[in-house]
């Protein structure tokens, strides 16, 4: 029975990769961009869900870690000529001037850097709880943004970095997404995941059971920051342009939205809602432009998209708090059992 499920998983993975291959061939560049965004948001959503959903630490600092990842990888992937072009007001710090690495090592360094900063921040901040933790992490991400705006010779300040090599393609974004999903499933099913969920349910009880609260919280926070950094780096090399204003609270909020819609504490839910939210955001763009319904022309109102979007979010929070999946996960048993039931009825 167990093997059957494993085989099913592998088969569906292969099918999914084939599907990606077909989509990569047939989609136009705009659609591929959305597909990439979906993959990146899966990574980002899962990383926030690990911290917020599975460990129950309400962190609002994701945009900061993404900024670290994005800038780190950008500094390593830009060619020396591009650096000279970008940093025209103040030259870049000499050590980074001639460095250029391929995408994979840059991505790893970006993740490690974000993870390291996350680790350093976690030690003092994780002593706080609930709202205080939320505000402190939000504070840290704002500090990171302010620092990046002011360190002209490292990040080019408010001008941002332009013309980054667009390395992110369907394989990178969805490769990372699939990797993250597999990692999360293994983590959550293992002893660490169970410890994290115990902390979420009841800290005092978890501590009484012998779980080292602080250590587990730090591990969760650091892994979450690492993945956020990788996601940020992928995003930077998809868009090709980054500046500190991109990494405002709004970005954290978008990711939080994905986690809430999917169900706080569900991997399946996050994956579904990352795709749904990203596609919906693009679909709602119609509202901003003029609509031609044949007999009537509705001139779009710029900004209407975001109003509808935030109203939708409020609706979900107020009336459908559990999100798409609640804390449930997809398992093959759903399909297998349904089939069994069906044959029973038939027989």
């Amino acid at each position: 029975m167990k093997d059957k499920r494993k085989i099913l998983t592998i088969i569906s993975l292969i099918l999914f990769v084939i599907l990606l291959f077909i989509m990569n061939r047939t989609f136009d560049s705009y659609e591929i961009r959305i597909l990439n965004l979906c993959g990146i948001y899966v990574v980002l959503g899962l990383s926030l869900n690990l911290i917020n959903g599975f460990t129950g630490l309400f962190s609002l600092g994701h945009a900061g870690f993404m900024a670290i990842g994005a800038y780190t990888s950008a500094i390593f992937t830009m060619s020396p000529e591009l650096k000279q072009m970008n940093y025209y007001l103040k030259p870049i710090i000499p050590i980074f001037k001639n460095i250029q690495l391929p995408f994979l090592p840059s991505l790893l360094i970006a993740g490690l850097m974000a993870g390291l900063i996350g680790f350093l921040i976690a030690a003092p901040v994780l002593r706080l709880k609930d709202d205080y933790l939320a505000i402190a992490t939000l504070g840290f991400s704002e500090i990171i943004r302010v620092v990046f705006t002011n360190t002209q010779s490292l990040t080019n300040g408010a001008l941002g970095l332009k013309g980054l090599p667009k390395y992110t393609n369907v394989w990178w974004s969805w490769g990372m997404a699939i990797g993250t999903v597999i990692f999360m499933v293994l983590l959550i099913k293992g002893s660490y995941g169970r410890a994290l969920m115990a902390i979420r349910e009841d800290e005092i009880a978890a501590e009484a059971m012998g779980i080292d609260l602080f250590r587990h919280k730090i591990i969760s926070f650091t892994i979450g920051s690492f993945l956020a950094g990788v996601g940020g780096a992928l995003l930077a090399h998809l868009l090709g342009t980054i500046d500190p204003l991109m990494f405002r609270f709004l970005l954290t909020f978008n990711i939080l939205l994905i986690v809430v819609l999917g169900g706080i504490g569900s991997i399946t839910g996050t994956v579904i809602s990352a795709v749904v939210v990203t596609v919906l955001m693009e679909f709602l763009r119609v509202l901003d432009g003029t609509m031609d319904l044949g007999f009537i022309r509705i001139s779009g109102i710029p900004g209407m998209r975001m109003v509808v979007f935030s109203a939708l979010l409020m609706f979900v929070i107020l009336f459908y708090q559990r999100g798409i999946m609640g804390t449930k996960e997809f398992t093959w048993d759903w399909i297998l059992n349904r089939k069994k039931k069906y044959t029973q009825i038939k027989g």
């Binding site: 917020n52 309400f58 709202d131 939320a134 709004l250 909020f253 939080l256 809430v260 706080i264 109003v307 935030s310 109203a311 979010l313 409020m314 929070i317 107020l318 708090q321």
Partner: peptide, 13 residues
């Protein structure tokens, strides 16, 4: 957490 998300959502709206 739900109330806080609702507060952020209200602000956003």
């Amino acid at each position: 957490i739900s109330v806080m998300i609702s507060a952020i959502g209200a602000s956003f709206l």
